[in-house]
Design a protein around this nucleic acid. Structure first.
Lengths: 337, 337
DNA sequence: ACTTGGCACTCGGAAGTATTGAGTGCCAGT
DNA sequence: ACTGGCACTCAATACTTCCGAGTGCCAAGT
């Protein structure tokens, strides 16, 4: 029902509209792309495309603009992810490899991605629950206070203060520490609850209250939504665009952690880049934006997601390329540190 | 040269302009404030105020708008900081006291302040260099890798990975740990370099390379600009205002750490709230904004700063009240944790 | 020496009107 | 199935008119 030429027309419309930000007319199309037919023919094709809902006329005497459905078709069938240039790759690599801890990796990544795409970048911290325990440390900081430090194999460090029910000797702390580490070393964080279940039976009765306090904080740490920390950067790039929805709405949405979560949520199949366009977006304030999301991780284990948010009128191939590339590099950096 | 009534007129102009966002004319003034004189008299006063540079006419036949100089006079002599309502105080207290670690305290503070003032809030992390060592921990994570964890008395935790030149036994790590802690416990971070200067002479020769590695990382951590981490929130509130400078410029400035640093930089005397208005601002992109800044800290030790950024047309008394109150509460929270 | 009512003047913004031209839909001819 | 031609539509732009809020200034009053 849509022959090749009509698809070519749609592609041309999307490309032109993205680059000019103006409704594109039949005349402009035949000028800029050599389609080998006259503008009248194109007009007929456009009439069909419009009837099918792929494009839309803002008003009678204007050119056409792609609809969300049109972008969807474009992304699915008419475009290929555009690989980055060599210079860009090198820039990514050098920029990211200078990072010295997890916060820094994430911070650099989000700024990099924002700059690369000139849009808003969103990066989720590596999930706690999918990584493994590297080390657990108990640090006495006062007579009845302990600091629990949990280090994961992705380099993430969580710390939490513990109030203990009674005073602790150096050696019982040492004992607890050793116990926890032998029990948990290399243990996936998801399995921690079951791994520690029988610990209380393996210590002296007088140590049980302390152990209980430690374990309760430990488990709490794992569950905490803190897990799902997300940062974004590049909000300034939004100011250049004008949204049908007000800019304010978009900014507000971006400042809500929950919204960001949903934004990255549910990438389709994890091997590639997912795009969510305009109204496909679950969130009210973001109905006039599109999101390009990718998983990242070490090896074949997915740790978290990152992505880019921009107007539906977006350079999809380029953005997808940037997101894919950055996701890969972050994975490498995390693996190597 | 400016009698009481002229000052009253200026105050009235500022207040009206802030609340209506429209140039205020002589008629409107006598209506809304009972000044006891006629509009013609006010006009004369306004002519004087304009000549002196306190107010300004966007164009003939428009009302008057305060200049930066006018706001300055208003802030310095015509207004008093407005204390928060009881309900607001309670809200601050409950909201902040729910925080469970330093990141959380800072995160909550910045969101709270943004919401309270409906503007952009900026919070600097407590300075490392002004706090003291609470504990140093060395955690072996692999045969030749140590994690250095530095805990300060403000609850801040820094961690850094150390590659050691040779393998380490449990006991030599223990020895180093004990050495560092006895040497550094309670030591102000600024004094750390001198405190550790003679350590190499107090260990076995074979431990020196490791100690050197540890110390170099430790000192590096102290110097790092990481120290000066700053976060902001409430960018969405900017969208509601319109700037003479484009919104984009302001957002860009906000995303630059260095600019944020300068923004909070140099509060005058530390006991109170500092205001920087429009062109007083060092930074190009922020010439059409004002900043209200306060120090916060524990006891009489200043740890860092926080503030609010908004249009020069801002409710100064209210904003100053909010900033002062939040700064105090944060200090309390930090002291108590 | 201030204050005041009166008055002519200014000029931005709103509202109305005319013009332009990009773009369309349709049709008859190839 | 494609094309050239033509009448039509309508947002955007420019130009005009009009209104009124607000001013500055002056002469008269206290």
């Amino acid at each position: 029902m849509l022959d090749d030429r009509k698809l070519a027309v749609l592609r041309a419309i999307v490309e032109d509209y993205v680059s000019t930000n103006e409704p594109v007319g039949s005349k402009a199309l035949v000028d800029r792309h050599n389609l080998g037919v006259s503008s009248a023919t194109i007009r007929n094709d456009m009439a069909v495309l419009e009837e099918q809902g792929y494009i839309h006329q803002p008003h009678t005497s204007a050119g056409r603009v792609p609809t969300d459905k049109g972008y969807r078709l474009f992304v699915d069938r008419l475009s290929t992810i555009k690989p980055l240039s060599g210079a860009e790759r090198r820039a990514i690599e050098t920029f990211l490899s200078g990072a010295y801890d997890l916060d820094d990796v994430v911070g650099r990544t989000v700024r990099l991605l924002a700059q690369l795409t000139r849009q808003v970048a969103v990066v989720q911290y590596p999930s706690l629950t999918r990584s493994a325990v590297q080390h657990v440390e108990l640090v006495p900081v006062a007579s009845r206070r302990l600091l629990l430090v949990l280090i994961t194999d992705t380099g993430r460090v969580e710390q939490r203060m513990i109030e203990t029910p009674n005073e602790l000797s150096e050696e019982s702390i040492g004992h607890l520490r050793a116990l926890l580490n032998t029990c948990l070393d290399g243990c996936g964080l998801g399995e921690v609850p079951s791994a520690v279940a029988d610990l209380p039976d393996r210590v002296q009765p007088e140590e049980r209250p302390v152990l209980a306090a430690v374990l309760s904080v430990l488990l709490e740490t794992l569950v905490e939504k803190h897990d799902e920390k997300i940062v974004f950067a590049g909000a300034a790039n939004l100011a250049a665009v004008d949204f049908s929805k007000s800019l304010r709405e978009v900014l507000e949405a971006l400042e809500e952690q929950v919204v960001l979560m949903r934004l990255l949520g549910e990438t389709g199949d994890s091997s590639t880049v997912t795009v969510r366009i305009g109204t496909e977006n679950p969130d009210e304030g973001l109905r006039s934006t599109s999101v390009v999301v990718a998983d990242y991780g070490v090896g074949d284990m997915t740790l978290a997601r990152l992505g880019v948010l921009g107007p539906t009128r977006m350079d999809y191939p380029g953005t997808m390329g940037a997101v894919r590339a950055v996701a890969r590099y972050v994975g490498q950096i995390l693996a190597g540190s």
